[in-house]
Nucleic acid binder design. Structure first.
Lengths: 218, 218
DNA sequence: TGTACATCAGTGAACGCGCGTTCACTGATGTAC
DNA sequence: TGTACATCAGTGAACGCGCGTTCACTGATGTAC
């Protein structure tokens, strides 16, 4: 079951790839994703620009890997939170927000303005779905989660026939709706908060987020 | 009351400034705001690059003007919608969404990932506040709008003392809360929808938006 | 109405910069006998 | 254990590109007498 035995060269390659990504994240955290430059990373590493082409085919491949790692980190964090004894959906929401506040540029890389000319590969879609699955898993355990037999609101009824995104998750339509709604509300707060739209408005963002979540699970 | 009489030269300047902005928007709609380039605009206008410096001090000034115009267009649209006989807050929300879908890049310029190294001047903040005011005006007319005397939820109580952003609007705290919450939910749907995060999920986005709004005014 | 002057739009050359990417190469590291 | 060879990380030069911005200038347009 262990990984195929690594040659020293393979190990070295993996290390350098990781170091490149580390510097890439630092750069993104400083100037945003659109400013990501291979040459600048190389300079920071004390290495010539073309050297990086041994490790990544080009800028796009690096960005793809960063996006994948970004989704992975969120998914892992959510798994960890969901596995905690007694974790409810509000705890999960807080986990998402903490993850986002931790590195706003990483958040924007995944959920912000699409990088022009870049199109996400399938691998990232798979992790996005995994994230939704964790959310759904947590929602079905909630006390407010309606049973499958209850009468459905119109949109829940719509979801009954349009649940492909839930990957065959057994949650009843009303729960799908709740999860989707909660996801959107989390994203709503985060996209505005991290873009600085709440700056100077004067209210307590933590309290607002809590109020939103309280309302979402009511 | 008319504008101060314009000399032909002033008129000409205004025309050219408008034409520059027109091409700027086209460019933004094609490749996003980060790709906005004065030289490219000049080329499109069949004019040399430095010529544009007669009209804008530099790239930043142009972007500022675009952002201001963007906020202005949303504010105007919302005023028009709010003044319509019998317009409720859901109609207003639809207006916002239509405005966003009409030109996603314009939306992202205002509410998306902040442009690195750019900081918004006060003038844009003023228009943002105007937008909130329209929203609040519409909310206080709603049948669900709670009276000032009703008992307050914790966050509404917090808003009682942190309502600077409402610019002295007379709406009771509970209404402030509702308006804020509605605003965030609209933004939540839009930021995900326009970034393409709903692509391939398979449900009807219009219907989802309607369901969100129905729940927000419940 | 005609002339002299001031204003100002637009030009082309230039500066300095950084980008992604390719290519032929050197020199170190690993592999096979 | 020692030698011959293959692999491959990293270099430096180069290509072609576009960017924002400055500067001294030409030539057209407006203004004042």
């Amino acid at each position: 079951m262990g990984a195929k035995t690594e040659t020293p060269r393979e190990r070295y390659r993996a290390q350098v790839r990781a170091e490149i990504k580390k510097h890439a994240w630092e750069q993104i955290a400083t100037a945003g994703a659109s400013a990501l430059s291979l040459n600048a990373i190389a300079k920071q590493m004390g290495v010539s620009g073309p050297a990086l082409y041994r490790y990544y085919a080009g800028r796009d491949e690096l960005i793809t890997e960063l996006i994948k790692d970004g989704y992975r980190s969120l998914a892992d964090r959510m798994h960890a939170a969901a596995d905690d004894e007694g974790a409810d959906v509000r705890a999960l929401a807080r986990t998402i927000r903490r993850w986002a506040l931790e590195d706003p540029h990483r958040y924007f890389l995944l959920y912000g303005t699409p990088v022009p000319g870049y199109h996400a590969p399938d691998e990232t879609t798979v992790i996005s779905q995994e994230i939704m699955t964790v959310l759904l898993d947590t929602c079905v355990r909630e006390p407010w989660a309606p049973a499958a037999e209850e009468p459905e609101a119109p949109f829940a009824a719509h979801l009954r026939d349009h649940r492909a995104w839930a990957q065959g998750h057994p949650a009843p339509p009303a729960v799908l709706h709740r999860a989707l709604s909660l996801w959107v509300r989390v994203q709503g707060v985060l996209s505005l908060e991290l873009a600085g739209q709440f700056a100077g408005m004067g209210f307590d963002t933590d309290a607002f987020f809590e109020a939103e979540m309280a309302d979402a699970v009511k």
